[in-house]
Nucleic acid binder design. Structure first.
Lengths: 209, 209
DNA sequence: AAATAAGTGTGATCTAGATCAATTATTTTT
DNA sequence: AAAAATAATTGATCTAGATCACACTTATTT
């Protein structure tokens, strides 16, 4: 049947895989078809199953990953064995250990798929080539980094000044979509509080209103 | 006397003011003389006296500032009236409220000179022109932002996982120079602890060793 | 050289959130 | 559909660091 053939085609077509990346890039810079076609060659698609690691502590973070589908997280385990989540990365976001990527030092982060996911990977030499051959990408990444820095500074200031409840409320407002997709104890870990405290806060809030 | 004339000359000469900026830019990108001369025109030098504000909460952060001499801080005051320092900026560093600078929204930060200082200011339209006329600067700022993001992510993860003492020790190792120049209670505020706690930690450390 | 302001040190007390310990859902696997 | 693994809730207790309240030092101003 046509339907089957079509879905097989879709499964193997890389055309569809680059849709979101294309859209996202276009929001910041304007590329010619030729430039975008070159850009495609710089990336390798990869599928990840739920719980699969893209990067494990101790390895070098050889890739920056653009998330086409699914949801990943990057996190670190401290000396006491506690997990701290740096980032959730749903569709349209980038994840990587930038430090490890740029320095080739072993990473102290883990990056893991929280859902079955599809990512586009770019390694250091492809990335260097991309910037060299399409200098507009300097601007694209500059803008991404700018936004990311502003958001991270905000989160830092919040972590220094807000109560656990304030952090939670701000989080639910800022990332309402992630709420459904991420288990509670990971939200707690992202916020820098314990699962128990988050559970109590949610109870209080539901009673209050 | 020659000496007097010379020092008057130096005081008004802008040549010397751009030395550090030039050096810093050269560490990341290579500019022709022509390009750097254009770059100069984009900046306005300004002297700040100790305690003078470069930006006050509520105003729009119209400039990014490169510090040629002296030391500034950017900080925010929370709902309870407590100060939280985002950044110390000694010679060779940039300070700004990036969010306010890029969006034209009123800033929630204060930026203040902690010593008599000299800064080079660049406003939004000069900055846009600079990037347009010397696209290499996209790369320069991309690299700056990259490094800044990595450092801020580190600080965030630290603020979630380290004890007050660990934060202090890490700080003294990472910025030994700032220790002499910044009053203790501001270091506490940067670390997200109270002056009292920092004072006790320092006492303990001095007794221990 | 007073006078004023800014910064530091120390004790006594308090508290938000952590830790410990079970219990009860909810998913996932077989 | 049962067993196993993962998550979430709830109570009891503990603690790092905050808060409050002064005394003491060191810089700035006048």
């Amino acid at each position: 049947m046509d339907k089957t053939i079509d879905s097989i085609f879709k499964q193997y077509s890389t055309a569809s895989m680059f849709e979101l990346l294309h859209k996202k890039i276009n929001e910041i810079i304007t590329l010619t078809d030729e430039e975008f076609n070159y850009c495609r060659t710089a990336f390798t698609p990869r599928k990840l199953r739920k719980r699969q690691y893209l990067l494990q502590e101790g390895d070098v973070g050889k890739y920056q990953a653009f998330v086409e589908k699914g949801l990943l997280r990057s996190y670190k385990i401290d000396d006491k064995g506690v997990e701290h989540i740096l980032q959730f990365a749903p569709e349209g976001w980038w994840v990587a250990d930038l430090y490890s990527f740029f320095t080739d030092e072993p990473s102290s982060f883990n990056i893991e798929a929280l859902e079955d996911s599809e990512v586009l990977l770019i390694n250091k030499s492809s990335w260097d080539m991309l910037l060299q051959n399409v200098p507009k990408f300097e601007r694209y990444f500059r803008v991404l980094l700018q936004n990311n820095l502003v958001a991270t500074q905000r989160r830092l200031m919040g972590s220094l000044s807000e109560t656990a409840e304030e952090k939670y409320l701000k989080y639910t407002q800022t990332y309402p979509d992630c709420m459904q997709r991420v288990p509670q104890h990971m939200i707690a870990s992202y916020l820098g509080i314990t699962r128990e405290t988050l559970s109590r806060i949610r109870k209080q809030l539901s009673e209050k209103k």
